[in-house]
């Protein structure tokens, strides 16, 4: 079973966010709640859909991640860029926070 987290964009400003353990949304993928089974995945998506209806976020979807030494990161390159911010602008996005 592939590990997955749910991502979306925040409705108001479009910022990339990840669904967290407590059902909120964080700008850091490392805060993301990882699903490890079909049921967990369905539960996560149901929570995400519910917040999308409020609407807190827009277009939630699942991405594959890997876990290394307790830290999760996306499998696809596209999602790595989405999680970090545009490589051509190191001052924008999460990459700026991590320096």
């Amino acid at each position: 079973m592939a590990l997955q987290v749910v991502t979306a964009n925040r409705i108001g400003d479009g910022t990339v966010v990840y669904l967290t353990r407590v059902g909120g949304w964080s700008e850091r993928i490392t805060d993301g709640e990882v699903s490890r089974s079909d049921e967990e995945r369905d539960t996560l998506m149901a929570v995400a859909q519910a917040t999308a209806e409020i609407p807190e976020v827009v277009e939630p979807y699942l991405i594959d991640v890997v876990e290394e030494a307790g830290v999760i990161r996306p499998v696809r390159y596209r999602e790595a860029i989405r999680a970090q911010g545009p490589p051509v602008h190191p001052a924008f996005g999460q990459q700026a926070e991590e320096g």
Binding site: N9, I11, G12, D13, G14, T15, V16, A52, E53, I54, P55, V58, E59, R78, I81, R82, G85, P86, F92, G93
Partner: peptide, 28 residues
């Protein structure tokens, strides 16, 4: 209406696109 939850994204998307607003990788 979108921010108040009265329009879903499916309803709103064609409206925002008619006004040049896309959703991209990091943001609108």
């Amino acid at each position: 209406r979108r921010l108040a939850g009265e329009l879903t994204e499916d309803e709103f998307k064609p409206l925002r696109l008619m006004n040049g607003l896309y959703l991209q990788l990091h943001a609108y």
